[in-house]
């Protein structure tokens, strides 16, 4: 691991002022992804700003009947919260499908949104990767991987977001509230917080370097059933081959794009009276990738939409 300066933030303003004067610095919360990448020297921040003890872990109902989840709430705290379990069960299920208990006890909501791809070529510092080293090429394009993007990829990068949680958040139309050193507060849709790779896959999100996530806000859960399912290579404790979250008439797909992928074509088809299978096929019509992977996602999406309608998915 490369040397770095370590600072514990006293409060949010302190964290932001440190970030504003520290090019390349990173906020540190649970550290479960960032420290792993620093050991591999894929991340080499000159300074870590420890925000882990800031008072941003509350989970509270909002005036509008939704839920505000502090950015430093652990994955375990969110999945265990009675309000989440009873009103947003697809979110609780998505979080419980991620990592191990040890990781979920430490990992935070804000950190989950900021985690980086697990593309095996990004994780291998010996391989070309445009996301890790801009201009070096994409090893995944002709490589071996069962977890490549089906939607929104570019010639530069076909990596996917590894977050299970954000798939459910996208299905609930969640918003991330952030603040910058100049005091400006922004509300960003979780669905589009992450950029599609385009010509600059090294930039994961729209967040500025001095922009800190304060909370995630969920509107009231939509009418209708919810369901969640994750398909992976073993029964527990590994990343998704694909996942699907359904909340009412909203459908989000996971591990198929650089962001949680709202299946708008499927949603439109369902609104027009299509069956779950027809809706899933409508979404996958624009997918680019291996036929087998497309078929997996198509069948999974149809199943989970059906489960949500039958009220058996969560």
């Amino acid at each position: 691991m490369k040397p770095f300066a370590f600072e514990r933030a006293r409060d949010v303003d302190h964290a932001l002022s440190l970030a504003a004067v520290s090019p390349g610095a990173r906020f540190l919360a649970g550290g479960t992804n960032l420290l792993d990448l620093m050991k591999l020297e894929i991340e080499q921040p000159p300074r870590l700003i420890d925000v882990g003890r800031l008072p941003l872990a509350d989970i509270a109902e909002t005036a509008g009947g939704g839920l505000r989840i502090g950015a430093l709430a652990t994955n375990t705290a969110v999945a265990s919260d009675p309000k989440v379990r009873s009103r947003y069960p697809a979110l609780a299920r998505a979080i419980l499908a991620g990592g191990s208990v040890q990781l979920r006890n430490k990992a935070t909501v804000g950190g989950n949104l900021m985690q980086r791809t697990r593309c095996p070529y990004f994780m291998d510092a010996a391989k070309p990767c445009n996301k890790r080293l801009p201009g070096s090429g994409c090893s995944a394009m002709d490589g071996l991987s069962s977890t490549l993007a089906l939607f929104g990829a570019s010639e530069m990068c076909i990596a996917v977001s590894p977050s299970d949680m954000s798939v459910a958040l996208a299905a609930f139309d969640a918003v991330a509230e952030t603040v910058r050193a100049d005091g400006s507060v922004q509300r960003r849709s979780v669905e589009t917080l992450h950029r599609l790779p385009g010509e600059a896959p090294q930039v994961d999100t729209d967040l500025a370097p001095d922009e800190l996530i304060l909370a995630v806000e969920l509107p009231p859960p939509p009418e209708g059933g919810q369901a969640w399912r994750k398909v992976r290579a073993r029964a527990s404790y590994t990343g998704a081959l694909a996942s699907v979250a359904v909340a009412g008439d909203r459908v989000a797909l996971g591990a198929v794009a650089a962001r949680p992928w709202r299946a708008r074509a499927a949603e439109a088809a369902l609104a027009d009276g299509a069956s779950p299978a027809e809706a899933a096929a409508a979404e996958l019509a624009s997918a680019e990738g291996e036929d087998g992977r497309k078929a997996l996602v198509r069948r999974l999406a149809a199943d989970v939409i059906r489960q949500a309608r039958e009220g058996v998915g969560s």
């Binding site: 370590f6 540190l28 550290g31 420290l35 420890d50 882990g52 040890q102 990781l103 430490k106």
Partner: peptide, 10 residues
């Protein structure tokens, strides 16, 4: 927690 993915200073 996993002690390997945490810094002592945290």
């Amino acid at each position: 927690i996993n002690a390997c993915l945490s810094l002592a200073v945290m």
